[in-house]
């Protein structure tokens, strides 16, 4: 288990991580989600004792990283697949890591086999493709058979086959009871890989909870209604609706949020309103993510800036996006 409390990191005047508290449970894959520059890598470096927090604290199974005895046996991490000496062979890279933590030589060949690099173990790591480097990084992380694993954007730049392989691998590790903490800036990827989510933006916590809750609450489902009697329908809905969160004009149609399509259909039938279209629509994950982190994205384009709608402050543990009324 990883527990961060009030974790904060300043680099000069940049606040990379801002009073961040979260927990990562064992036996599950926890996605660490945030747009570029949100502070994911910085947080992971602090977990591993590489960067010193400006304030706050992070513990692994109750201990500080510095106090772990032979930490590679407790925590394995892949922060950057390119952090290998290019002229050192894959096997030698693992050999020195193993030696540093008194891990038996045989384990090196074991993890090489596990990630499918046995055939190229003697080749210099500098010649490896991104996918192979990624596998070597995973082998290094697994070397000490650790209970806790951290992966920073492990699928970045991989082809679909590589992505699938890593995804399955994460699931397997979690099923073995390990704590798996994996960062990404793609919600769609995390929706497939993770069970839990920690979402941050500009160093601050936006959400912590299950992926399902996040997806359910963060994606708004609306119903698109087309009818020659739209005005009457709108009045009826307004009169009816305590649950209605949104009614917007969408060309010659209405977009209604917060009410199931069946309820709208029944309301229309009861009032003899002709419907030409009754179309439930689920917002895309990426759309939801962008909206959620909308005002926390570090680097954004002008285009984004102008279409931004106030997402407001979101409290931790409470998925944003619900309870928000944007009536057109």
């Amino acid at each position: 288990m990883i527990e961060a409390t009030g974790l904060t990191k300043h680099y000069g005047r940049t606040v990379a991580v801002d009073n961040l508290s979260f927990t990562v449970a064992e036996g599950r894959v926890t996605g660490f989600l945030g747009p570029n520059g949100a502070g994911k890598s910085t947080t992971m470096r602090m977990v591993l004792g590489l960067d010193r927090p400006t304030s706050g604290d992070v513990r692994i199974d109750g201990q500080h990283y510095h106090d772990l005895h032979q930490p590679l046996r407790t925590v394995g991490a892949l922060l950057d697949a390119k952090w290998v000496h290019p002229n050192r062979s894959a096997r030698d890279h693992l050999r020195w890591l193993a030696a540093a933590s008194k891990i038996p030589r045989a384990r090196v060949d074991e993890v090489l086999d596990l990630v499918g690099l046995t055939g190229v173990a003697g080749k210099r790591a500098g010649g490896f493709s991104l996918g192979m480097s990624q596998r070597l990084g995973i082998a290094a992380a697994l070397l000490g058979d650790p209970r806790v694993l951290l992966f920073d954007e492990p699928v970045n730049g991989l082809d679909p086959e590589g992505i699938l392989w890593i995804r399955k691998f994460m699931h397997r590790l979690a099923d073995e009871g390990r704590t798996v903490f994996v960062s990404s800036h793609l919600l769609s990827e995390m929706a497939l890989t993770a069970q839990d989510l920690v979402v941050i933006g500009r160093g601050k916590l936006i959400y912590q909870g299950t992926v399902e809750d996040f997806v359910e609450h963060a994606t708004e489902s609306t119903v698109l209604v087309r009818s020659p009697q739209l005005d009457r329908l709108r009045d009826l809905l307004r009169a009816e609706g305590s649950e209605i969160t949104e009614i917007t004009e969408d060309g010659d149609a209405l977009r209604i949020g917060g009410v199931a399509s069946a309820a709208i259909g029944e309301l229309a039938a009861a009032n003899n309103i002709v419907l030409h279209e009754l179309n439930p629509q689920v917002g895309s994950l990426e759309q939801a993510f962008i909206q959620l982190t909308g005002d926390t994205v570090e680097y954004r384009t002008e285009e984004h800036r102008s279409e931004e709608h106030g997402a407001g402050e979101h409290r931790a543990g409470e998925p944003a996006g619900n309870g928000e009324v944007t009536s057109g």
Binding site: L48, G49, L72, D80, H85, L97
Partner: peptide, 17 residues
């Protein structure tokens, strides 16, 4: 070269002291 290629991080991960 350890700083250049990032292996210094692995070094300190293996030996936080």
């Amino acid at each position: 070269s350890e700083y250049r290629f990032g292996t210094i991080r692995s070094t300190f991960q293996a030996a936080p002291q």
